[in-house]
Design a protein around this nucleic acid. Structure first.
Lengths: 111, 111
DNA sequence: GGTTCGACGTCTACATTGTCCACTTCGATG
DNA sequence: CATCGAAGTGGACAATGTAGACGTCGAACC
């Protein structure tokens, strides 16, 4: 298992959203992706907090966006998932899948 | 979405383990199932705490085991997932799956 | 050229979850 | 009767999840 143990539910989702966005993962986009895909809403504060925590753990890193059009306000932070982040996602997914395996009947979704 | 929002990572796993065990879901068995299936280890304290919290939220309920052999110590608690618990699992899984969808290439697991 | 607005990021405070460990109970075993 | 193993409980604390208020810039408005 990944050294730090299992990531929290939100951490997992954020990691996935960042991954999905590829080179376009700045904060507000992550928020929109989370809402659109998962119906998961949260404030910017919550997002940045979690992202910062994950940075300390080495699951994500970020850089300032290149100063292209500069549309005002702070320069955007562009997030990216590290290999460690990918790894942690992989193991947590595997664990979950082994628990789900064979339960479909219970959920009225036979096979 | 389920009223109480998304369940935590551990809550999810415990719910699944209880489900898997069917009528045999007493605490120590849940612990073993979690370890065996998901490599997730935790103390009894952690388990009971989480189970109690989930009871308050209506995701699980329990009953004393029928006093058959009485092998000593406290009577065992037999856990069971409520319909609400099933529902919450279903929605959280759906959300996660929508986030995972299409990411397989990233994980070196093409299709 | 001041005001407002919208896209960003940051900070503080607090609620919820996750976690361990020491303690207790009680039958069986020695 | 001392010990052991299976169960459950309680207290304390660490990690995660969460909102909201605040600051900052450029652009658009007037």
């Amino acid at each position: 298992m990944a050294p730090g143990g299992f990531p929290g539910e939100l951490e997992q989702m954020i990691l996935l959203a960042v991954l999905r966005l590829g080179g376009d993962a700045y904060a507000l986009a992550v928020l929109r992706e989370l809402d659109a895909r998962a119906g998961r809403r949260l404030s910017r504060g919550a997002l940045y907090k979690t992202l910062d925590r994950m940075e300390r753990k080495g699951y994500v890193r970020w850089s300032q966006e290149v100063a292209t059009p500069e549309r005002g306000g702070h320069p955007r932070r562009l997030f990216e998932v590290t290999p460690e982040g990918v790894e942690v996602l992989r193991t947590s997914r595997a664990a979950l899948e082994r628990l789900w395996a064979g339960l479909d009947p219970v959920f009225g979704r036979p096979a």
